[in-house]
Amino acid sequence: MASTALRHSAGGDVEGGVGRTALLVAASRAIETHRRDSLAQDVFAEHFVRAAPACADWPLRIGEVPDGDADPLWGRFARYFGLRTRVLDDFLLSSVHAGGARQVVLLGAGLDSRAYRLDWPEGCTVYELDREGVLAFKHEVLAGLAATPRAARVPVPADLRGDWAGALTAAGFDPAAPSAFLAEGLLFYLPGAAETALIETVDHLTAPGSALAFEVKLEPDLLEYRTSPLYVATHRQIGIDLLGLFAREQRPDSAGALAARGWHTSVRTPFEFTREHGRGPLPESNDALEGNRWVFATRPRA
């Protein structure tokens, strides 16, 4: 159980604005964990939700949702997050086990518990970049569970709109060694210029043999989906106005920019992975997920 100090200090950093979306993802991962046909296991996720008073009535199992999988938020959207978790877990594990990277960087780490739950090789370090309050909240919850990371874990308090590269290298990151970067559910909250700067920074920080995965939205006008059941349900049921949080300007072509710099890139739809895994969201009318893309990039070895 979270302490009173936790509930009234660090917890506030994840209960408002973009920080609240980290709790949405945690609740979704908890629901996914308890499914009989689970795509990803995160035994820590429900503890983050329980530690935040504003989420006390959120479901943690699909059986607690009156409409079950028919619910646009806790059914379809939560399953999307479960699928995304599985796909990006696989990407990171492939990058370290097959690709040989021993540095993993989670940009906008939020309540990501991958340092604690994935099978990392010996000598692997996981750097978690996010706001100080978010990292403190996560640390207190995990410390209360006596959880032990399965790799060297290095929290890096940083604003991703500022000099986060300096903070990362000061924390021990070596740009000359292969690495795997992940920006999960991050870029569409940033202005286009900030996304471009972030991608350029990753390019400058990575050695041959490195990898990067990130998520983007390609809709030319997000407001065309303002009546999407997914957006409406998220706003009505838990008070998160995603369209109010997303940067609604035209997005840069970050995958194209990396390709122009010599990276090998692959742009996939989530629905491709639904078909690959046999479960997850499929396209529907007025679909807020229609423009979502998952980008995977590798920097060839010389």
Rank of each mutant, 00 (worst) to 15 (best):
A259T: 14
A247H: 03
V25E: 05
T169Q: 13
V295C: 03
S254I: 06
A78W: 09
D287F: 09
L258G: 07
P208I: 04
E276Q: 14
G239H: 09
V96P: 14
Q250E: 12
A257K: 06
L243A: 03
R268N: 05
V154E: 04
R293V: 00
S94G: 14
E122M: 13
P59W: 15
F44K: 13
A54W: 01
D241T: 09
G16Q: 12
A45R: 12
T298F: 09
R236F: 14
A257Q: 05
D221E: 01
V96E: 11
S210F: 08
R226N: 06
E64G: 10
T206H: 03
V14C: 06
V154W: 05
V18W: 14
A197D: 09
A45G: 14
A180Y: 11
Y231D: 01
F271N: 02
A213F: 00
L243N: 03
S113N: 15
V154Y: 05
L118T: 05
D90C: 07
L289Y: 00
A197E: 00
P281L: 02
S210Y: 09
A197N: 02
T125L: 07
L107P: 04
P252A: 09
S95N: 05
Y116W: 11
P157K: 01
P157F: 05
A40W: 14
W58S: 14
V126A: 09
L142I: 01
H277W: 12
Q237N: 01
A233H: 09
V216G: 03
A207P: 15
L106S: 00
P149L: 05
E284T: 01
E284I: 04
G12N: 00
F246W: 00
I199G: 03
G19V: 02
P178E: 04
D112Q: 06
Y231V: 10
L135A: 05
A98Y: 01
P59E: 13
A22G: 06
E219H: 08
A302H: 13
A101H: 04
A183P: 00
T148L: 07
A136K: 06
A10N: 09
D112Y: 04
F246L: 13
E15S: 12
D203C: 03
R299S: 01
A193T: 00
V96W: 01
G144W: 10
S179R: 07
H47D: 06
L60C: 13
A170S: 07
R131F: 01
H277M: 09
V232M: 04
G262A: 15
G280C: 08
H235F: 15
G166V: 03
V14H: 01
G63K: 04
F188H: 14
Q103N: 13
G244C: 12
V267Y: 05
A109S: 15
